[in-house]
Amino acid sequence: MALLDRGLRQRIVGALVLLALAVVFLPMLFSRPDEARDVQVVAPAMPEPADSLIVTPEPVEPLDIPPLQAMPEHAAESVVPVVEQEPPVVAEVPSSQAPLASDTPVAGLDEAGLPRSWSVQLASLASREGAEALQQKLRAQGYNAYVRSFEGKTRVLVGPVIEKTEAERLRAQLKRQLQLDGFIVRFQPERN
């Protein structure tokens, strides 16, 4: 079969397009209006607000309070004296026997009056320059890193955070993202 000439191909494509349009639009032309579906949505009416929920403000009248006066001398004799109670006796545990409760979070304030908080210690290096380089690397990653010197070593820590569970999440994140395996320690403010 010989190749169809260009004009014949265009006629066939045009006939197919007209046939497709007829299939789509002819049913629309011959449909009756009474065949249209009537959809009704039945919803309950909106309830009226309860009287107990309606609040009407009432004007407030100022209180008439007389100024304070000095106590008469005869009234001072009838005042009951306040008896101070002794504080409860607490048994002291020697520090060698007191366990470090690192697994249980302690709420409240520390000795300095600051909230107890936690940090993640990542390294303890002999070189201060190496510790500061690690600190800068951590800060570039968005972590609140700081260094502390202790017994000739320089420690690199991240934190502090208030909750111990938050410190545990931070430790896991540091291990996952930077492959640094640290441990959780109590935050100690820097002493001068």
Rank of each mutant, 00 (worst) to 15 (best):
A101K: 12
D34H: 11
P87E: 05
G113T: 04
S52C: 00
Q40P: 00
V24D: 04
M46T: 12
V83D: 06
T104R: 06
D103S: 03
P105Y: 07
A15F: 13
G108F: 06
E86G: 07
L19P: 03
P105W: 05
E92F: 04
L100I: 12
V13E: 14
A75W: 11
P59I: 04
D51G: 14
A43W: 00
T104F: 06
R32G: 09
L63Q: 10
A123M: 08
E61K: 06
I65E: 06
E61Q: 08
P105S: 09
S124H: 03
S96A: 06
M71G: 00
E73S: 11
P62A: 11
L122D: 04
P47A: 10
P27M: 11
S31Q: 15
A107K: 10
A70F: 05
E48F: 02
S102K: 07
S31D: 14
V80Y: 00
V39Y: 12
R37N: 11
W118F: 13
L125A: 05
E111F: 07
V42S: 08
A22C: 12
S52R: 07
E58N: 08
D110W: 06
V13A: 15
D64P: 03
S124R: 09
E61G: 01
R32I: 02
S124M: 10
P94K: 08
A36L: 14
L19R: 05
E77P: 00
P27I: 11
P62I: 05
P62D: 10
E111V: 08
P115R: 13
A75I: 10
P59F: 07
Q121K: 09
L100S: 10
S95L: 06
P27T: 12
E111G: 05
L21V: 15
T56I: 13
R37A: 15
P66V: 01
P66Y: 00
S96P: 00
A20D: 09
E61F: 00
V41E: 08
V80Q: 08
S102Q: 09
R116N: 02
E58C: 00
P62T: 05
A107T: 12
S102I: 08
L109K: 10
P67Y: 00
L63F: 09
A91G: 07
W118Y: 15
E86D: 12
D103A: 04
E77D: 10
A98S: 06
P47Y: 03
S31C: 05
E73F: 01
P44A: 13
P88I: 03
L26M: 14
P87L: 11
S119Y: 01
H74I: 06
Q121E: 15
E35F: 01
A112G: 02
P67Q: 03
A98Q: 10
T104C: 01
S102Y: 02
E35S: 14
E77R: 12
I65W: 03
T56V: 14
L16P: 04
L21G: 15
I65P: 00
P27N: 13
Q97M: 04
L109A: 06
A20E: 12
E73D: 15
Q69L: 07
S78D: 11
V80R: 06
S117V: 01
A20K: 08
M28I: 10
D64Y: 05
H74E: 15
S117T: 03
D34F: 12
F25H: 11
V42Q: 08
P88Q: 03
L19T: 14
V82Q: 05
S52P: 01
S31M: 14
V120Q: 04
